[in-house]
Design a protein around this nucleic acid. Structure first.
Length: 205
DNA sequence: TGTTGGATCAACT
DNA sequence: GTTGATCCAACAC
């Protein structure tokens, strides 16, 4: 058993593709009044700079995306489609807008709390999609701009090493789909919807 | 002040 | 494969 090491500023203030890849297998921790939530990341996407047409910073600096222009290691949470929030972690150094979208994870601790956020959890996976992950964790506008090296919301290395990481085009965007900036753990049942044929389920035997 | 489209999800057919 | 739910940020006027 390896000890838990909180990721520090130097982890985030690096090239975004590197951060996105290395976030796979790390644990997202959220300490709330309702207890501690933890989930192991299986899927993430990179959004890099004003030259990336799919990045929110493509339109330049605005009130909405301002936190992306700050230093790495802060949360960027935005509202979308009238119903969902998405959690990102800001990367790179101050002045360069980039972030990693946290898309899917495997629930580890506080699963009952996550389940309780759903009206009808059924057999649905709780965190296999960026909107669902935020819903399960109870993340919304109020958690935008949080310092991820603090005590409430952060990432931890627990020594888990993904066996295999694949990459594909990013999900749900129409611009710059040639950039294969989505990373996900191969064969994980906790990844979100499959883009194209790249993530097809394979049946042996 | 009004319009438009979006880094989504679930429930349909 | 398609659609409805639902709302805010950005931009046009």
């Amino acid at each position: 058993m390896t000890s838990c090491v909180k990721l520090d500023r130097s982890f985030y203030c690096r090239p975004t593709l590197k951060v996105a890849r290395e976030l796979i297998g790390k644990f997202l921790i959220y300490d709330t009044g309702r207890g501690r939530l933890a989930a192991r990341l299986v899927e993430a996407e990179a959004y890099i700079g004003e030259d990336d047409p799919a990045c929110h910073a493509a339109v330049g600096r605005t009130g909405r995306n301002a936190v992306m222009y700050g230093p790495g290691g802060f949360s960027y949470i935005y509202f979308i489609y009238g119903m969902y929030y998405c959690l990102n972690v800001v990367t790179e150094s101050q002045g360069f807008p980039a972030a990693v979208l946290i898309r899917a994870a495997e629930p580890i601790e506080g699963i009952e709390v996550m389940r309780s956020r759903y009206e009808n959890p059924g057999r649905n996976l709780l965190t296999n999609g960026p909107g669902k992950l935020c819903k399960a964790f109870g993340l919304s506008r109020g958690q935008n701009g949080i310092d991820l090296t603090g005590q409430k919301l952060y990432f931890e290395d627990r020594g888990y090493k993904p066996e295999m990481i694949e990459l594909s085009e990013r999900v749900g965007i129409k611009k710059a789909i040639d950039r294969k900036w989505r990373f996900f753990e191969s064969f994980s049942p906790y990844v979100s919807v499959t883009p194209g044929k790249r993530n097809k389920v394979r049946h042996e035997s």
